[in-house]
């Protein structure tokens, strides 16, 4: 879990307000596991004050680069997205726990909603290289075609790929969870891995539970420390109490979370 300065090597707006960014960070590229995140300062001043967490989208160990997907949602992400290659980033990471090793089986389902695609690209890549006997079936949902980013990166690392948009502008009209529902009815997945909006995660967790398939979700939450000290980024745990997204997660077994409290 180093704390380093990393030179920005790539910044490309790949959709409205969506930036694919890369930084030279060989230590992180070598250590990062799918599902883990980097905690990035967005500037040298005290305003905005806090770091921003981003899932690792993929790593290239040979060139020592790590890739992130940055969606502009406020001042901090706008500052970051405005940085040019050559800028130096203050980065902590890799942080948190990654996806657990797939259970025995022939194929797994990856369900991504919007920016939630980032950790699943890394996970699909790792499954194909490390668990090559497992087929990767991916679903990517987005509101519209223009914000369906990185679909090719996910499709290229999947044995089967399905796309959905809410307006039908690309792929099937509907939600990623609709596509999962259809697949679960006729396939026998060893596990479901999901990352995206809370509502989507909740439906995926319910569907997988109904089908008797283990489900793992990568949760997003605003963070302060990123290392488990401040207890600011908690989500409600099944059976009471709270879990820290930064250090108990961001990947959780679906049954570890209280979905009723989480999705409201």
């Amino acid at each position: 879990m180093p704390h380093i300065s990393a030179r920005l090597t790539w910044n490309e707006e790949i959709g409205p307000g969506h930036h694919l960014m890369a930084a030279h960070a060989p230590q992180i590229a070598a250590a990062a596991r799918p599902g883990q995140f980097l905690h990035v300062r967005v500037g040298p001043t005290h305003d905005p004050l806090l770091r921003r967490p981003f899932s690792v989208l993929r790593v290239d160990e040979a060139s020592g680069q790590v890739w992130l997907l940055v969606k502009v949602v406020g001042r901090g992400t706008r500052l970051l997205a405005g940085m040019a290659p050559g800028a130096v980033l203050d980065v902590m990471g890799p942080l948190g726990c990654g996806f657990p090793e797939p259970p025995p089986g022939e194929e797994v389902a990856l369900v991504a909603g919007g920016c939630g695609v980032a950790p699943l690209i890394f996970w699909a890549d790792r499954i194909q290289t490390t668990f090559s006997h497992i087929r990767v079936v991916s679903i990517l949902g987005a509101a519209t075609e223009d914000v369906m980013v990185c679909w090719l990166d996910l499709a290229a690392r999947s044995d089967e790929f399905y796309a959905t948009t809410e307006d039908g502008s690309a792929g099937e009209r509907g939600l990623a969870s609709d596509a999962l529902r259809g697949l679960l009815a006729r396939r026998n997945f060893a596990a479901v891995y999901a990352c995206g909006p809370r509502g989507m995660l909740k439906v995926c967790a319910e569907l997988a539970r109904g089908a008797g398939v283990p489900c793992f979700v990568a949760v997003e939450e605003a963070m302060a420390c990123g290392v488990g000290a401040c207890l600011g980024c908690v989500v409600p745990a099944a059976g009471g109490g709270y879990l820290r997204v930064c250090s108990d997660g961001p990947v959780f077994a679906a049954e570890a979370l209280d979905w009723e409290a989480l999705a409201t």
């Binding site: 005290h46 305003d47 905005p48 004050l49 806090l50 901090g76 939450e221 605003a222 963070m223 302060a224 401040c230 207890l231 600011g232 980024c233 908690v234 989500v235 409600p236 009471g240 109490g241 709270y242 409290a261």
Partner: peptide, 18 residues
């Protein structure tokens, strides 16, 4: 103590609420 439900933190101008 379990603590409060989330959201527990919010960034403000040069500061944060918790």
């Amino acid at each position: 103590r379990e603590g409060n439900p989330g959201p527990r933190i919010w960034e403000t101008a040069a500061g944060m609420l918790n």
